[in-house]
């Protein structure tokens, strides 16, 4: 869907992007991660043709991008504003027309979106009269009004209350199901884990990682497993004997626990289950993966040691 190749961009002597390559597949939610000042916004601006790269290319559906392609891109910048004196409807019509829609089309789409996001009571109110969350909903609607094939969202959840964060997430998932491609630049790692299919990590103007979320997490996995069980903790520890090590435990109730276990020697997860069955009542068991937050911090800090 979108291919970014060997992009370089400098602002005078400061290198903003260095030989950056990215590939975003059609119908996926792609996370663009990185600390502040890493170059994410610069990359997004280049994709949106707001600024020009010094070298390299951006291809959309195989073709070099032109200004005409902007009609197929929706963009919600991090630092987004609205004309405070305009009414919600007029503002949406203005931005929709800039994206090439006719007024008639805009009105039809607005009816749908305003209904869905419950904006109708504010339709003829001035932007300055809206709450921050409501203004953000309007901004989101303006970004998706022209039904773009590619939607680029820079920190879309900032400023939203948890209910609206869920609303937006839900909407993004629906859009993905409808075949849209979404690039999500965010610091909200929980959202990345929840809705992103793949992600790239940019640090100090370079891409330092790219892959599916599970691939990225696997890179830092530590061989820990969690077991939720009913029974006695003493029985559980006895069953482990010398082949496994109890790293941590959490008491959920009188006879209910979550235990985190590390393998010793060549023991596998299968072996662990074998020794436990019959000793306790296993409710659930899973491999402990690092959170994206951990992956992010470790990648950025250059720490390659196992998580313990």
């Amino acid at each position: 869907m979108l291919e970014v190749k060997n992009i370089n961009k400098s602002f005078y002597r400061n290198e903003a992007l260095s030989d950056l390559n990215l590939s975003v597949n059609k119908g996926e939610i792609f996370g663009l991660l990185g600390p502040n000042g890493a170059g994410k916004t610069t990359l997004i601006r280049i994709i949106n043709r707001i600024i020009q790269q010094d070298s390299g290319s951006v291809r959309l559906e195989g073709n070099l991008m032109t200004n005409d392609d902007l009609a197929h891109i929706g963009y919600l910048p991090e630092e987004r504003g609205l004309y405070k004196r305009m009414t919600v409807e007029k503002h949406a019509v203005f931005l929709g027309r800039l994206r090439g829609l006719s007024k008639k089309d805009i009105m039809i789409k607005l009816d749908y979106w305003f209904e869905k996001f419950n904006v109708n009571p504010w339709r003829n109110k001035r932007i300055e009269e809206l709450s921050k969350g409501m203004a953000q909903k309007v901004q989101f609607i303006c970004a998706v009004l022209h039904e773009p094939k590619l939607l680029i969202l820079d920190e879309p959840f900032s400023g939203f209350d948890p209910i609206n964060v869920e609303l937006i997430k839900q909407e993004l998932v629906e859009m993905r199901a409808a075949g849209k491609t979404i690039i999500l630049s965010t610091h909200n790692m929980k959202s990345v884990e929840e809705i992103c299919d793949r992600a790239a990590l940019i640090h100090e103007s370079k891409k330092i990682a790219e892959g599916s979320i599970s691939e990225l997490q696997s890179e830092y996995k530590s061989g820990l497993y969690s077991i939720r069980f009913r029974g006695s903790m003493i029985g559980f520890v006895n069953a482990l004997w010398t082949g496994f090590e109890l790293v941590d435990k959490e008491i959920l109730g009188d006879d209910k626990f979550v235990a985190i276990v590390k393998m010793r020697r060549d023991n596998s997860f299968q072996d662990l289950l074998k020794v436990l069955i019959g000793q306790i009542e296993i409710e659930a068991a899973w491999e402990v993966l690092p959170s994206m937050q951990d992956v992010f911090i470790r990648k950025v800090s250059g720490d390659n040691s196992d998580l313990n």
Binding site: N48, R49, I50, N67, L70, G81, L98, R99, Q139
Partner: peptide, 13 residues
């Protein structure tokens, strides 16, 4: 200052 400019620049030069 209110950053609407970036929204606009994604559609117009």
């Amino acid at each position: 200052s209110n950053r609407i400019v970036e929204v606009l620049l994604a559609s117009v030069s």
